[in-house]
Design a protein around this nucleic acid. Sequence first.
DNA 1: CTTAGGG
DNA 2: CCCTAAG
Length: 634
Amino acid sequence: MVSQTRLEYGFNGYQVPVFPRACRSARVRVPIRKTSGNSQKRAFEILVSVAGELLQESKTSVPEDQQIARKNLVSKEQEDERQSTKCNISDQETCDEKTFISYHQIDTLNKFSCAPDWFNSKAADANLKSFDQLANVSGRNANPSAELRSSSLVSREFSEGKVEDAGTEPSIIRTVKSETPPLTVSLDVSQMDRKTPDFFCSDSKASMFKDWITLGPSRHSDTIDLVNRDDDKKYIGCTQAATTLKAFRLPSNVADQRIKNLSSSRHWGVSPNLNGGASFRNDGKRFQDGRTSYSRQRSKRMSSFKRRGVLNQRPFSRSDRGFQLDNRFNSADKRSDGDNSSAAIRVGSSIASPHPHLGSRERNVKLRIKSFKVPELLVEIPTTATVGSLKRTVMEAVTTALGDGLHVGILLQGKKVKEDGKTLLQTGISRDGKHRNLGFMLEPGHPQIIPPPCLGEQRITRHVTSFTLEPETSGVSGHVPPVSGCNNGGESDLHLVSSLPNISANTITLLNSQSVLSIPAISVGALAVVPTHLRARRRIRRPFSVSEVEALVQAVEKLGTGRWRDVKLHAFDNAKHRTYVDLKDKWKTLVHTARISPQQRRGEPLPQELLDRVLAVHAYWSQQQAKQLLESGV
DNA sequence: CTTAGGG
DNA sequence: CCCTAAG
């Protein structure tokens, strides 16, 4: 059985791995497995292709030390380049169910830049080469930092029918565009052929979400089955019936090195030259993988700036997940709902019935996501940086873009469907015979209009977004191997089942372009001014699943409160994203939840039995604590 | 680094 | 979830 590598994510020839968050942490292994196994549990991939354009060249010269830093960076990059040529993804792609790729072992970025031959030699390189040349030129002009704005083109493409770059300045982007047929994002299984360099480049060829996504009420429960239509193909997959698409992050061990060279920022602005340190943390690193680095980063973060106070008035505090909205959005004041501040997923929906003989109830709704758009990125990279670093930088920007806080919104005939509890039938999504405009949106979790933080010319914007499709999982996440990479507590009721392949293009209906507005561009001078390492990112919110709560309660029953590290070790050792502080916090909220009325509770409803246990356990250990206090006092 | 609590 | 003071 030939394996289809799922590591190859198109991205203007660059691969953009989008992995479940759990897979990002160090020592996490991601399986490449055949779909012949458990066909009920498949993973998604998102293909991201980002085109860009050269915005402007910075006129500020760069301090000496930065020059040096850049120099180092270059040499490092060159070294990386050399290594990267060796790696070949195909080495891993032949893995079977039992085969894992350990990102721990992989020199991550290099590996991910391990592209098929066509990539390393062909279009992408050519494109990037032009940037390189241009960069060198501008470098001579004492313009060490040119800004490259990577913009997603999908929206425009779709709304205008073609890609139209209004820009007049000769930019490398044009080169890129010319050689790289426009298209932005694709989630495509059938086109994953690595021998098809342009699969992500042409919207005709690479219909983005080639797979049908079947939305249908599960017969069994609310569990979402993610099924691939083709059992012969391989996947990087979750082992659970859950899917999560999130940004990839470096393994912490590599990260430390990388961070110095690469801007691995969650922010769109990426400036390796300024980057003196980590701009992100690895999950779990705080107390597990990087005992040293955590303190290092921590102290760095703390010593540098009190970031909430110094950098801006309210720089990113609550707005971590918010998009930077431009004026029209500000004035629109869509605070209540984030309809505007969303990236759009265009969906061709065909309410086809695979089984005409079945009653309408049992029919599945097949939905095809034609494409989706990634919010505009801004990338800054020194002109002395290598092509390879550019690749990586853009890649990181994109993966970061997909990394956090994005929710999926559903649009039906231009209207946002918010009733997560309703069935598709009730909503009308399953109405057969009529092709309805159906759209998906990537939207910030908590839409907020953020007043542009102005700090002279230093305006920072961060778009921390993610595309998460995560149904419930069955197992206790603390007990499942990280391989699953799927986390729980999906808030979406999406039932994603990729299924039948053949979709005629004419079944595709495009969204009303007014329904989905794109993320506005960020002003040029606004980004990449403040060193990214000064900013830390808030971790994405990951609601505890019922299973996790069960595990937590059980552990606390056994260990008591106040031993959160032990609790962590006992019940959540494998859940790298759950720190003992998290567990402690969760317990806190659990106790609170158990006390309030069910009507006031939010999130996935917890079994009353569980909450009762919480109260009982809490009472018990509180009493124990009191006793001990008394004894020690006396 | 862990705990405990406030935010 | 984040941040911090304390231990």
